[in-house]
Structure formats: structure tokens, C-alpha cells
């Protein structure tokens, strides 16, 4: 009796361990790079955080001689502070014509198609804007960063605006002794070395 109960407990325990180990797989370091980003290049760094943290981030890039363009750094406010900017896309997606026109349920597919085209067009428009950013501000790379707390994952991405290709991605599990500077330095070294 005791043995079978112990076996069941062991199996349940094993399942929990296995389930836990699977969630850990998303917290492993992942890195892929197709080209090294050399020091001295002009970059636009996009990150969602308070302005004092943003200053720390751009300082680390400037210390490595990157030319940091004033994209996402030219305002006293951040995107999080401006509700209209932050949620504009969300609002436009959520607004449903169906609710206004209950009698037109047979047009559901039409609305779905409009939604799909809207989504494609939105992505195409962003590409046009990025091309303008590249030409007008002479930006070579667009760098996106997101900082995670300890035991979470910080991530980064770099896009070459001349080829419009993703050239570097990394997921970096934030360590216990990490601070903003060390995480950013890690990302900068990773994108510069391609390792």
C-alpha cells in the first residue's frame, strides 16, 4: 500500500519536475546573428522604459562609439505616459463594425478580410517609415531592447535598415548580479562580436 502511494507521489513529482524543466527551456540563452555590427555605426535604439534608464542605455552605446540617433529619445515623455499613442493600434483593432450593424452578419467575411488587409497594410506602412528614418536620419541599424528582471529574460533584436533584414537576435536570461549597464553591455558585445 505504502509502496504504491510512494510510486504515485514519485510519478506526480516527476511530472512536475518535467513540466518545470520545460518552462525553463524558454529561459535559456538564444542567440543568432548573420552579421557583426561594428562600432561607429549609426543606430536607433528603441526601448520602453523611464527616461533616466533610457539615458543609461544610450550612454552604454555611446561609450562604444555608436552614433545614437534621436529616435525614441527626443521627448520628455515615454510611450507609456501617452495613452493615445500606446493604445492607438489596440483601439483601432478592437473597434468592431459588426457590433454596429447587427443586421449585416452576412458581411462578416467582408469585415474579416478588411481586418486582414489592415494588418498587412500596417506592416507595409511601417517598412516605408523605417526607410524614411534610414534616409533622413542616416540610421544604419534599428535596435530593439527589452529588459527583464532577475530570473526573467531580457531580449534584443537588430535590423539592418539598408537590407531590411533581421541581423541579430538574442534572449538573455537576466542574472542575479545584473544591472541595466551589464545587460546592455552584454547585448552590445554580442551584436558586435556575433557570438
Amino acid at each position: 500500500m505504502k509502496t504504491s502511494a510512494l510510486k504515485i507521489a514519485l510519478i506526480i513529482g516527476l511530472l512536475f519536475v518535467l513540466a518545470g524543466s520545460e518552462s525553463c527551456t524558454t529561459k535559456k540563452r538564444v542567440m543568432s546573428s548573420t552579421q557583426k555590427i561594428p562600432a561607429g555605426t549609426s543606430v536607433a535604439v528603441v526601448i520602453e522604459c523611464p527616461n533616466n534608464i533610457k539615458n543609461v542605455v544610450i550612454t552604454r552605446f555611446m561609450k562604444k562609439n555608436f552614433k545614437v540617433r534621436a529616435v525614441n529619445y527626443s521627448d520628455l515623455y515615454t510611450m507609456k505616459d501617452i495613452y493615445d499613442v500606446k493604445d492607438f493600434k489596440k483601439i483601432s483593432y478592437n473597434a468592431s463594425l459588426k457590433n454596429d450593424e447587427k443586421s449585416l452578419l452576412s458581411m462578416e467575411k467582408t469585415f474579416d478580410n478588411i481586418y486582414k488587409l489592415h494588418f498587412y497594410n500596417f506592416e507595409i506602412n511601417k517598412i516605408q517609415t523605417l526607410k524614411e528614418i534610414k534616409d533622413k536620419w542616416n540610421v544604419k541599424y534599428l535596435i530593439l531592447l527589452d529588459l527583464g528582471e532577475w530570473e526573467e529574460v531580457s531580449w534584443g533584436r537588430a535590423i539592418d535598415l539598408s537590407t531590411l533584414e533581421l541581423v541579430w537576435v538574442e534572449n538573455y536570461p537576466t542574472q542575479y548580479n545584473d544591472v541595466v549597464e551589464t545587460i546592455i553591455d552584454h547585448f552590445i558585445n554580442s551584436m558586435m562580436s556575433g557570438m
Partner: peptide
């Protein structure tokens, strides 16, 4: 080779 399509944003609001 991955193109810059949807990869250029911090969040995905879909």
C-alpha cells in the same frame, strides 16, 4: 533570411 516585418516593434498587439 528574416525580413523586417513585424519584428520592428517591442510588443505585438494582435
Amino acid at each position: 533570411r528574416i525580413l523586417c516585418f513585424q519584428s520592428n516593434e517591442i510588443r505585438n498587439y494582435m
